[in-house]
Nucleic acid binder design. Sequence first.
DNA 1: TGTACATCAGTGAACGCGCGTTCACTGATGTAC
DNA 2: TGTACATCAGTGAACGCGCGTTCACTGATGTAC
Lengths: 202, 202
Amino acid sequence: VAQTRRRIIEAAASEFRGKGIDATGLAELMSAAGLTHGGFYKHFDSKDQVVEESVAHAAHSLANSLQSKLSSSSARALQAAIDDYLSAEHRDNARDGCPFVALGSEITRGNKPLREAATVGFLRLVDAIAAQLKNMPPAAARKKALVMLSTMIGALTMARVVTDPDLSDSILRQARKDLSRRGARLTGATRSGQSARRESRT
Amino acid sequence: VAQTRRRIIEAAASEFRGKGIDATGLAELMSAAGLTHGGFYKHFDSKDQVVEESVAHAAHSLANSLQSKLSSSSARALQAAIDDYLSAEHRDNARDGCPFVALGSEITRGNKPLREAATVGFLRLVDAIAAQLKNMPPAAARKKALVMLSTMIGALTMARVVTDPDLSDSILRQARKDLSRRGARLTGATRSGQSARRESRT
DNA sequence: TGTACATCAGTGAACGCGCGTTCACTGATGTAC
DNA sequence: TGTACATCAGTGAACGCGCGTTCACTGATGTAC
């Protein structure tokens, strides 16, 4: 059936994010999907193709999960979504996480279709965040969202690179704090006393 | 002579940043250094070792170049250094650029010594930037520097991922603008009318 | 100063291995009658 | 309802290739005398 194809893409999206694109072989990827490697070409023309589709899938997964966190539409929903993104859980679980962090530098060197797929996924994240910045015109919100996402992606990347656990935690914490401050200003939300106290400990 | 070793490391640092660590073979790397691949093991024990040393070298290069830009000690030196980092030139020239952007996701999955070397290099960047944030206590400056670097690294990464040139430019521009605003606040520098006008066009 | 020798950086062929890709085959499923 | 056949997703062996690594060899350099 054609749902096997979906299973392969999902397995591939996890394997690639966990081990890297180059380092993940088709045999490995197919066995993660519960198949043998020979059948791969019944579903895809090449490794490049499954890479493109699985990066697109991962990016849309992330965008969907973000959208649903934001759909509550509460003033603090954006901050909660950002806190999840910049959490120790996300840092320690690359297989299910942001493809831009897990594969950023590999995508950078990828072919056009791969980078195109990544661009589309990135724009969905940008729009989702910009839509929450209600105290400013849409064009300005979009610009702010670009910077906020850059900070999130850079912080999570470096939190994974760094070997010192305290430093890693600190990178995530400072980025959360910073985005919280801007978010509060830009959405008009007031940070709760508890949240403000928690963050100012650090 | 032992300066051949240095030449190999420099060639490796460029090749790895340009093509990726996994995708660069030892033969390629040695011929970039003007040698044949057989001699590699006269200088290094393994590919892992040259990877570690060349990432360390690239990170220290970047830190040195940043330090020297900042040594002018002018109030706008930090902003100029950030503008260089977030420039189209840096985006289009990964071979000589920031190793955290060129190799971030590969380093993330690297072995301990590699990530250790990256951590040391990253901390040099953090300290160089924090030292310019003169309107706040050192501990607070360091925290700010972590966030600023995260934004820089994330923005440059996404500027390279994205296929739309306008979007790519916009990511860099918005990050520059954002960091400029914070930088001005934190260093006590006043942005020049020209610079403010230039940036507000966008 | 000139000759004999040791050293060792650099060469290039060879190795085993895992990769992406191909292909002849299998065997479950669905349709024709 | 039962039988014959076509389809095609999935199997597993095989391919050529480039990788990291090894190694016997070369030939320039430096020292001993």
